[in-house]
Amino acid sequence: MRENTRFWRSMLAITWKDLALEWRSREILTAMLVFALLVIFIFNYALELTPQTRSEVTAGVLWVTFAFAGTLGLNRSLSVEKDRGCLDGLLLAPVDRSAIYLGKTLANLIFMLVVAAIVLPIYSLLYNTNLFLPGLALVILLGAIGYVAVGTLLSSMAVQARTRDMLLPVLLFPIAIPILLAAVKASSGFLQALPFEEISPWLNLLVVYDVIFISVSFMVFEFVVEE
């Protein structure tokens, strides 16, 4: 019981530390937001959309934006640990390695959801599309969980390399394809108001991938961060 409490307290301490660091520096959210807004502005001018095609491409544009902005955040989140040796500081502490992984993942998830919460209203205004749909919010939550679950693991691998900025997308995107594909299809379904029966297989796929990615990452994180 006491070990369990310690696990969750350590995990929350790591998440809280990441949020406090971001509150002071505003490095991660600023980079993610600037990038995400630039992408949706560029798409807005590059694609001349009719009201009919708008709902078809919105899901793709949104998830491209989240995926690339998320990669920036994941890279920075682990670079902060590596630059001043803080990753060693975490690994030296008598806490379960999985608590470190979950603490970092939760912080990265919060950053990604904050970016989504800011991007969605701006996108709605620019593209004149209603994105305030509970179903879409659910897809964004599920997609973000899977993306940061595997992204946090891979960024902790990539951060050991000199070419970490390039390495993370190269490692992450092929593995995250099932998550991104399911998220785009489910988002598109909700935006086009398709019957729930047509959307639910994609939602199920998202849930399954979330469980798989979190479980595998939870188990292998210890071996990834140790020499």
Partner: peptide, 15 residues
Amino acid sequence: MLGVVSHLPLLYGDL
């Protein structure tokens, strides 16, 4: 039981 000091501070600069 261990305390470790290296040439890197293992501290967060923004905190």
